[in-house]
C-alpha cells in the first residue's frame, strides 16, 4: 500500500487520492448490487417465462391426461405418477442409508484410514456428474442385476445421487451437537445406540430433514441419469396400483413397470419442433420448478429457524 502513496507535498493531492479510492469503493458497491440484482432477475424471468408460456395448459385435465400425439389434449398423468413412484423408492433407499452412514462417520468411526477412505469417497461422489450415475445404473442395475428399465432401477439410480447430500447434511447436523449432551446420557447408563437414537438424532433431526428435502428436490428435476438407463419418453399407461382391495392390500408389481418422469416428459416436448408442444413443456417445467422452489424454500426456512432457535 505504502508504495502507491508517494510522500505528498501537496495536501490536495492526498485528498484527491482518498476521494478517488472512496469513489472506487462506492462504484464496486453499485456493481455488486447490480450483479446480484441481475441474478435475482434471471431467476424471476426463468420462473415467469415458464408460468406465462405454460399458463394456457395449467388446468386439471393436464394432470389427468396421458401424453398424446396431439399437443392440445396431452397431459402429464403418466409423468407425475412415475415421478411420485420413483421418488418413493429413492426416499426409502437413500434416507436410511444416508443417515446411517452419516451417523457412522460422526459417532462411531474411529479416526483412521477406514473413515478417511469413506470420507474421501463421499466428497468425490458429490462431484461426480449425474450422467455417470446413469451409466453405472445402466451397466449394473439394468444389465448385470437384470432389473431392466423399471421404476426400481430409476429409484435406485436417483438414490445414488441423493446419498452424498443426505450424508453430508447428517454429518453437519450431528457435528453441531455439543459433547455434554452425549455425556449426560452416558452418565445415566445409556448405550451408544441409545445415546445416538434418543438424543443425538433428536437434536440433529432439523438438519437431517433439511438435507433430505434438498436431496429430494434435486431428484425430482434430475433428468440425465434417468434418460441414460433407457426410460421411455412416451408412456400412455400407468404402472399397477401399489394398493389393492384384496389381500395383501399392498403389492410391489409397480416396481417392475415401465415409466416416465416429469423432467423427461418436459425434455421430450422441448425436442418437438411444433410450438404447441413447447407450451406443454413450459407447463411441465412450471410444475417442476414450483415443486423444487417450494421444497428448497422450505429447506432454507427450516435451516434458518433451527439456527435461530437452538442455543446450546
Amino acid at each position: 500500500m505504502a508504495s502507491t502513496i508517494k510522500p505528498a507535498k501537496d495536501l490536495n493531492a492526498v485528498r484527491a487520492l482518498i476521494k478517488k479510492h472512496k469513489k472506487n469503493d462506492r462504484l464496486f458497491s453499485v456493481i455488486g448490487i447490480f450483479v446480484i440484482a441481475a441474478l435475482a432477475i434471471a431467476l424471476l424471468v426463468l420462473f415467469l417465462d415458464l408460468v406465462i408460456d405454460g399458463y394456457p395448459k395449467m388446468n386439471l385435465e393436464f394432470f389427468s391426461n396421458f401424453p398424446s400425439r396431439k399437443a392440445e389434449g396431452a397431459g402429464i398423468l403418466s409423468a407425475w405418477v412415475g415421478s411420485a413412484l420413483v421418488l418413493t423408492v429413492t426416499f426409502f433407499v437413500a434416507v436410511p442409508m444416508g443417515v446411517a452412514a452419516g451417523i457412522y462417520l460422526e459417532e462411531y468411526a474411529k479416526k483412521g484410514w477406514f473413515s478417511d477412505l469413506i470420507e474421501i469417497n463421499v466428497a468425490n461422489l458429490a462431484g461426480v456428474p449425474s450422467i455417470i450415475y446413469g451409466l453405472l445404473a445402466l451397466g449394473l442395475f439394468v444389465y448385470e442385476f437384470g432389473l431392466g428399465t423399471s421404476i426400481l432401477t430409476a429409484g435406485l439410480t436417483l438414490s445414488l445421487l441423493m446419498l452424498p447430500i443426505v450424508i453430508v447434511s447428517t454429518r453437519e447436523a450431528i457435528r453441531a451437537i455439543p459433547v455434554h449432551i452425549r455425556e449426560a446420557a452416558y452418565a445415566v447408563g445409556a448405550t451408544k445406540w441409545q445415546v445416538t437414537l434418543h438424543h443425538v438424532l433428536q437434536y440433529a433431526m432439523g438438519g437431517v430433514l433439511t438435507g433430505i428435502i434438498i436431496g429430494m428436490a434435486r431428484a425430482i428435476g434430475e433428468t440425465a441419469p434417468v434418460i441414460t438407463i433407457g426410460a421411455l419418453t412416451f408412456i400412455a399407461f400407468l404402472p399397477p396400483a401399489p394398493v389393492s382391495e384384496v389381500m395383501p392390500f399392498i403389492n410391489f408389481n409397480w416396481l417392475d413397470a415401465g415409466f416416465t418422469v416429469l423432467p423427461i416428459q418436459m425434455f421430450n416436448w422441448i425436442s418437438r419442433p411444433e410450438h404447441a408442444f413447447h407450451i406443454n413443456a413450459a407447463a411441465t417445467g412450471a410444475v417442476i420448478i414450483i415443486l423444487t422452489l417450494l421444497m428448497n424454500g422450505l429447506a432454507i426456512r427450516l435451516r434458518y429457524s433451527i439456527r435461530k432457535k437452538i442455543k446450546w
Binding site: I36, L39, A40, A42, L43, V45, L46, D49, L50, D53, I214, A217, R218, I220, G221, E222, T223, A224, P263, M266, F267, I270, H278, A281, A282, G285, I288, I289, T292, L293, M295, N296, G297, I300
Partner: peptide, 24 residues
C-alpha cells in the same frame, strides 16, 4: 436475503435451464 436467492438458483433443475437456453 441474497444467500437464499443463490440457493434457490442452485435448486433449479437443469432441464428447465435447457428450456430457457433454447427458447428464450
Amino acid at each position: 436475503i441474497v444467500k437464499p436467492i443463490l440457493e434457490l438458483l442452485v435448486g433449479v433443475p437443469t432441464v428447465v435451464f435447457g428450456y430457457f437456453a433454447l427458447l428464450l
